[in-house]
C-alpha cells in the first residue's frame, strides 16, 4: 500500500508541508517495498483555481490509498474520499516522523475537511 505525504523537500528528512492543494510536491511511500518516489505538484501550485481537486486527482493517479497532510479543504476532501483515499492530519515534523506515527496508528483517519477552501 502507498501513502502520500505533502512536502516541499525531496526526502524523508524533509518537513511535512501543511498545505494539500498547493503542496509543492508529494512524497509517495510504498509500505510493501519500503521505497518512495517524489512527484512534483507544480501544475496544481500554478493553477488559478481548483488546486485541491487537481491535487486529489494526482494523488489518486499515483495509486496512494492514504494521504498524510496538514490540512484539507472541502472539495479536495470530496475527491479523495471518492477515490477511496484515507485522509490523516499530522502537525509539524518530518516525513519520517509522520510515517512512524502513521505506522503506529497514531494518525486516525479524518472524518471531515478541517479548513474552508482557499484557507492559505
Amino acid at each position: 500500500m502507498k501513502v502520500a505525504f505533502t512536502v516541499s523537500g525531496g526526502d524523508l528528512a524533509a518537513p511535512l508541508d501543511s498545505r494539500f492543494g498547493r503542496a509543492p510536491k508529494f512524497l509517495v511511500y510504498d509500505l510493501d517495498k519500503e521505497t518512495f518516489e517524489v512527484v512534483d505538484n507544480r501544475q496544481s501550485l500554478d493553477a488559478a483555481q481548483g488546486a485541491g481537486i487537481q491535487s486529489a486527482e494526482t494523488v489518486a493517479r499515483l495509486g496512494a490509498k492514504a494521504l498524510v497532510t496538514g490540512h484539507c479543504g472541502p472539495k479536495a476532501f470530496r475527491v479523495l474520499r471518492a477515490a477511496g483515499i484515507g485522509i490523516h492530519y499530522a502537525g509539524e515534523g518530518t516525513v519520517a516522523e509522520a510515517l512512524a506515527r502513521y505506522r503506529a496508528g497514531e494518525l486516525p483517519e479524518a472524518a471531515a475537511p478541517d479548513v474552508e477552501g482557499h484557507w492559505a
Binding site: G50, I53, R78, V79, A83
Partner: peptide, 13 residues
Amino acid sequence: HAIVSFGTTPLVF
C-alpha cells in the same frame, strides 16, 4: 476540474 471521475459516477463541482 468541475467534473472529476475515478472509474465511478463523476463528482460535479
